[in-house]
Write a protein that binds this DNA or RNA. Structure first.
Lengths: 191, 191
DNA sequence: ACATCACGAGAACGCTCGTTCTCACCAGTG
DNA sequence: CACTGGTGAGAACGAGCGTTCTCGTGATGT
């Protein structure tokens, strides 16, 4: 088997399994089985489980953000709609049957107390996402605070949808985001 | 040693360790050492690690909510201030040096994929918290949606404060909550 | 005083899991 | 054809951990 193909199949298997069951719950042998790869090959490409974890998080980070931005670019016309389109994308995500939260929040919850690598990955991912929201809200003419506030709504929606098991938080967050966006547009916050 | 005292010391140790390092990262022997209790006693009081985990989450649930409600009752005068006082309490919490997120979100991230018991505990805890916020916002005369929206802000603040390592999200969330609360007070949402 | 019982301390057991090693096999090279 | 080197399949190793067992000891009841 080609090396690149093997890498991809390993990362696909790791992503499915790590996300579904947690990182510590999935052994390297299970990933080997799911990827259809030999253990030797697995350790050649990822010398330790930590390396595989890092690659998993890195790939998921870029893919996830790319998916959001692609949806925003494709579906929204006005700057305000671009902000709100993020919540439509979230609702789609929450509706997928295997959804159970943000992989980075989950990883942080599982290993944040022991792995600085996971903390750094989560921080990087959230920084990038929040910066993107800030960019969108600024483009929509909102006050400086609104980006962070809308980021909090999005984060809250992710964990609430995961724990409650329903996609409803996406719509509630969207509604709140619309209010924050339209009411503060162009005005100083005045607080 | 008294049985009740042993229970308490075990739960104290388990809470410190589970919260700081994660559940799977902490062995029963470490809890035994920290509690100053024999392994025999530990298993007499909590026949399995799962039982100990359940007791830990149950106690933390009631204590956490009690702490919030106590602060709200003690510090806030008007119904609106009672809602916003929740975010002051959050800021205090975020500022504690050992803060790294909501124990239930972390537990869910760690074991949500494999333990229905943890899922149920997290759901119960979040249901109770969100119901409390709903109660506060209703008492403040806000529209029906506002409770859920403010809950999303609080949840987002918890995870964002944990991952970013700063307490700032509490103030951002409070600002947004104040807007949602005052702007929607007494009006239909009109969306 | 003697039998009984509970308990403290820690060893032991069985399992999981990350990682490495063994061994047979096949491809290419002189 | 011999030789070398890489590969596949899986066994093996070593550590960690949840749980139980052993053993020595001291308290209790009669």
């Amino acid at each position: 088997m080609d090396t690149d193909l093997a890498r991809e199949r390993i990362l696909d298997a790791a992503e499915d399994l790590f996300y579904a069951q947690g990182i510590q719950a999935v052994g390297m042998d299970v990933i080997r089985d799911a990827a259809g790869v030999t253990l030797r090959r697995l350790y050649q490409l990822f010398p330790s489980k930590g390396d595989l974890l890092g690659a998993y998080l890195a790939r998921r980070d870029t893919r996830w953000l790319h998916s959001v931005t692609t949806h925003v670019d494709a579906s929204a016309r006005t700057p305000q709609e671009r902000v709100l389109a993020v919540f439509d994308w979230l609702e789609d995500w929450f509706t997928q049957p295997d959804y159970h939260g943000c992989a980075f929040v989950n990883s942080f919850g599982e290993l944040g107390g022991t792995s600085p690598q996971v903390v750094a990955a989560a921080r990087h991912h959230k920084d990038a996402f929040h910066a993107y929201l800030q960019e969108l809200t600024t483009a929509a003419g909102a006050a400086a605070d609104v980006g962070a506030q809308i980021a909090l709504l999005a984060e809250g929606a992710m964990t609430t949808a995961a724990i409650s098991g329903t996609p409803a938080p996406a719509r509630q967050a969207k509604k709140a985001a619309r209010l924050l966006l339209t009411l503060e547009t162009g005005h100083p916050t005045g607080v």
